[in-house]
Design a protein around this nucleic acid. Structure first.
Lengths: 136, 136
DNA sequence: ATTTATCCTATAGAACTAATAGAGTTATCA
DNA sequence: TGATAACTCTATTAGTTCTATAGGATAAAT
């Protein structure tokens, strides 16, 4: 399952991406438009700022704005930041690899073999899709 | 994340699939060979029996055995039984569809658009892969 | 100074997962 | 027919993760 965090984060990113100018947008506005709990959204936007997708401005007229061009934001990295590993099991993860402790040999493991293919197919989608594609 | 239930279920299925004859295999044997908690495996095998993948025989010399040919067991159905929906979000699920209550229009939703592609790519892998492919 | 808005930490409740416990039922075989 | 092996089923628990909320701290604008 996709977490609400990822879902809301993606919606917030697209909302910021469709803004005409680069003026900061307030959390409250995004939360209203996208039906997201404001406090929850707050923590998600904070994560996105810390990982370099968003800039922020405090005080009156403040808010959040995109730092990068939408066409430069690939889903691979957004998903990894918000959701975590793309692989469904650590033993086939590129960025979060971990050995299964119950499995003597990965090469002959059926689960490994299957999940490797699933990972690759998901990765292909995420790699070729940018934020710009999603708002088109 | 793939649940342990699915992981163990797949391992048990492959273990049964590589048996020479169709003699029942005991839970204890599978649990020993695949390093799975016997009690937990018990409940998983029960699920697989109720959904028509396995047959069972009680009493001395009893155990579980495959009912279908490995080449006739597609991953789509196994995953749906053990893991649940293949889609990462209900609004793009074929078998477990549910509308998002925060989303006014699916067609214009970025998350929907992205997850539809991810679902399709995963589905393609699961559809073309059978139990027979995994033990090859 | 006051208002507006982000920043940050802590925490609580709900839901789900993984595993265990234990009693019940059925089949086989001597 | 009695003992035993093995599956059947329900309940429960411990642990984890997810979602959301609370509340104060900090910074900018006017």
């Amino acid at each position: 399952m996709l977490s609400k965090k990822t879902k809301y984060g993606l919606k917030a990113l697209t909302y910021l991406a469709i803004q005409k100018d680069k003026e900061p947008v307030q959390i409250a506005e995004i939360s209203r438009h996208e039906n997201i709990s404001q406090k929850f959204l707050e923590s998600i936007l904070l994560t996105l700022r810390k990982t370099g997708y968003l800039g922020s401005k405090k005080g009156k007229g403040g808010g959040y704005y995109l730092i990068k061009e939408p066409s430069e934001i690939a889903m691979t990295s957004v998903i990894r930041v918000l959701e975590g590993p793309i692989a469904m099991i650590p033993c086939v993860s590129l960025n979060f690899y971990e050995k299964c402790n119950d499995c003597p040999d990965e090469k002959s493991c059926a689960v490994h073999k299957l999940m490797l293919q699933v990972r690759d197919s998901a990765l292909e989608v995420y790699r070729k899709t940018t934020l710009a594609d999603l708002i088109a």
